[in-house]
Design a protein around this nucleic acid. Structure first.
Lengths: 213, 213
DNA sequence: TTTTCCATCAGACCTTAGACGGAGAAAAAA
DNA sequence: TTTTTTCTCCGTCTAAGGTCTGATGGAAAA
């Protein structure tokens, strides 16, 4: 029997996973938790073989919980099960000691399989996540806007608000010619043709200014 | 029996919800889908009473899918079930015709209850979301893009993709002059100054095209 | 120190966008 | 039927956007 603990603040996800895992004879769910801090408690009490861990939770995130679990129970395998596969989530999680990394788009079978493999000592990485890792290993340049300078990023956020070059210049206290230079550089770095596409890019990649309304 | 379709690109969430719903005697899951586009197909085929819809999905987002479903089956109740409750998700979803709005932090019982209430004609709104709505109603204003004609909405979505007037003309098989006319009308109706602001508007209000991958 | 990168600005040049006015045809509403 | 709406298109004009080349001073890295 492989002893499993499930940590996720989404009630449905937790129930769904548990319901499925219990149909598997080799698996036994010995605990569940709805936050990172509670998860650590239960894991330390139950000492399971495998932990299914969500990353983003309301109280105590999964990365901290993973780090804590690994420092106490190094033979426990933590499998990350989350919706996100952006760099800000993946790399800290792996660095915290996660053993496998799955996405919630995975099928129930895949998750079950990953648990068994983790128990046997095999890591399972979601292809999309693996892809991230590879590109990161190859060239340390991920998203196009990582190449942007700080100033260019400011200008891009202004474009994302729909400002004209003149308005951008007024806001940043620089001339319109300078703004044009920045815009040109931004467009070529992002590999887009005009400011509208740049604005779309900004919105698709969550590049907003934090408003203090 | 209340006929339900579940649309969510997270396999576990979908399975979890379905597993739970099937323990309820009054409910019958008549379909499931892992993307917005597939969801629309299945809903149109099955004509369920209630649809549980995730918002952020890989192929075809839930907002467009909801809009499409409501335009075809206006008596079908779409319940949004998502992780997010920021303005950019909530308002477009409600405006697209969502009947209820739940978060994935809701318990299985709450979701089940919401389905039954939706079937009976009662809307259920998560308190956090309801709070957002209240603050918005105080400064109640109709969405400017309600005034747009169908054609103008198409053009606006093209702008939101970053297309030029020429490219829009090519895609819609109309002349660039016509496109310019539409754009001018759109800009004045949305009360913005240029296409970039229009693109920003489109993205803030979830006006995207459903891609058929 | 030398080199590289960044932010700033300039002028010339061309393309695109957008405003304005006008107009015909088809469809829907009155 | 008449009226209104919508979609289509034209020409002209001005402003804005964008490219290219080039230049300066400063800061950081080599």
């Amino acid at each position: 029997m492989i002893r499993v603990v499930v940590v996720d603040d989404h009630d449905i996800v937790r129930k769904g996973v548990i319901t499925y895992l219990e149909t598997e004879e080799q698996l036994e769910v010995v605990g569940e938790a709805s936050s990172g801090t509670k998860g650590v408690e239960i894991v330390l009490a139950q000492k399971p073989d495998v932990v299914l861990m969500d990353l983003i939770m309301e109280n105590g995130n999964g990365i901290e919980a993973t780090r804590e679990i690994m420092s106490q129970l190094s033979n426990c395998k933590v499998i990350i099960l989350t919706s996100y596969y952006d760099d800000q989530q993946v790399f800290p999680a792996l660095e915290a000691g996660a053993f496998s990394y799955l996405l919630k788009t995975s099928s129930a079978e895949e998750i079950c399989d990953a648990i068994k493999k983790a128990y046997g000592g095999d890591t399972v990485i979601e292809p999309k996540v693996a892809n991230k890792m590879m590109t990161s290993f190859r060239s340390h340049q991920e998203k196009p806007h990582d190449q942007l300078t700080e100033r260019e990023l400011e200008v891009l956020m202004c474009i994302g608000e729909g400002l004209t070059n003149q308005e951008i210049g007024d806001r940043l206290f620089i001339g319109i010619k300078t703004v044009k230079t920045h815009v040109s550089n931004i467009l070529s770095k992002l590999n887009v043709n005009d400011r509208t596409q740049a604005a779309v890019y900004a919105h698709r990649n969550g590049l907003f200014r934090i408003k203090n309304s």
